[in-house]
């Protein structure tokens, strides 16, 4: 495993030998990946390569059949909600907002794990409760302003245009104050302008101190943003390195364009992935 970018501190996320089997199907095969603080790492590969499955292994939605995932040196807890509390947040490939809650409420829910006022506090409504609610609202508004949604805070999530829904998902994920943010195809379906805005947003997220691991098909997006890119094909990591290295690698080009290889990693390469 070669990491060509400067990796100063201990890795934030270290996935080692992660394998995920569903019955007879091996979706992810012995994948190693590290993300360091302040890094933006890209994960690319044709459809069906196992990228979302790998994500799900990183967030506790699936427990890897083999391999370990550590975050800040400790093994990931087995339950998704504990993973979020530990500091990894995610967005989903198909938007999973709380459609019938307002924009503000969505972000407030995102903050759930960083607040602890339980039922008793809610029933008694002491000063602590009111303070916590006020703080939560303030933080949520900060995030909405950060993502440019502040003026729509009382709109229902389902009524937002597509691009803003994606932004809301990111704002909601950021509400849990994660150290690492997993973005699953954040620019799917976006026009170039929206894609550039998302790029700016991701860069700003990195400025604020959160590392980012992003699955994407838009190569320009990847190359503009990522310090480090890994390529997943047929569940295995094919190549990894800086965007330039990866872009010029023959095997990667072949995986996307379908030229038969001498030593293919899998049986067939699926040529339906987007070409840059």
């Amino acid at each position: 495993m070669t990491t060509t970018s400067d990796a100063p501190a201990a890795p934030l996320l270290a996935a080692t030998g992660v394998t995920m089997r569903f019955g007879g199907l091996t979706a992810v095969r012995a994948v190693d990946l590290t993300v360091h603080p302040h890094q933006i790492v890209g994960l690319i590969g044709p459809n069906g390569a196992g990228k979302t499955t790998f994500f799900n292994c990183l967030t506790g939605l699936y427990t890897p059949t083999e391999g370990t995932v550590t975050y800040r040196g400790t093994r990931l807890p087995p339950k998704p909600h504990l993973v979020t509390t530990a500091g990894i947040a995610r967005t989903f490939q198909n938007i999973r907002l709380f459609a019938n809650m307002t924009v503000l409420e969505n972000v407030l829910v995102g903050r759930h794990t960083r607040t602890k006022e339980g039922l008793l506090a809610a029933l008694l409504r002491g000063p602590r409760f009111h303070r916590a609610e006020k703080t939560s609202e303030e933080r949520a508004m900060e995030l909405l302003e950060f993502t440019g949604l502040a003026n729509k805070r009382h709109h229902l999530a389902r009524n937002l245009p597509y691009g803003e829904q994606r932004k809301l998902e990111i704002a909601r994920a950021l509400a849990s104050e994660p150290g690492l943010l997993l973005l699953d195809e954040p620019t799917a379906g976006m026009n170039p302008h929206e894609t550039r805005t998302t790029e700016q947003l991701v860069l700003a997220i990195r400025e604020k101190g959160t590392a980012v691991l992003v699955i994407e098909h838009d190569m320009r997006f990847i190359f503009n943003l990522c310090d480090h890119v890994a390529v997943l094909v047929q569940g295995q990591k094919l190549v990894e390195g800086t965007p330039d290295t990866v872009q010029s690698d023959e095997r990667v080009i072949a995986a996307y364009l379908g030229t038969p290889l001498e030593n293919p990693p899998g049986d067939d390469t699926d040529p339906t992935g987007d070409a840059t």
Binding site: R96, E105, E117
Partner: peptide, 21 residues
């Protein structure tokens, strides 16, 4: 309250709610 919002979130989409911690 926070609890009430969490309940509604669970009702809307439990997987997403879990991802929120």
């Amino acid at each position: 309250s926070r609890i009430g919002r969490a309940w509604i979130a669970i009702r809307e989409d439990e997987t997403a709610a879990t991802a929120m911690g």
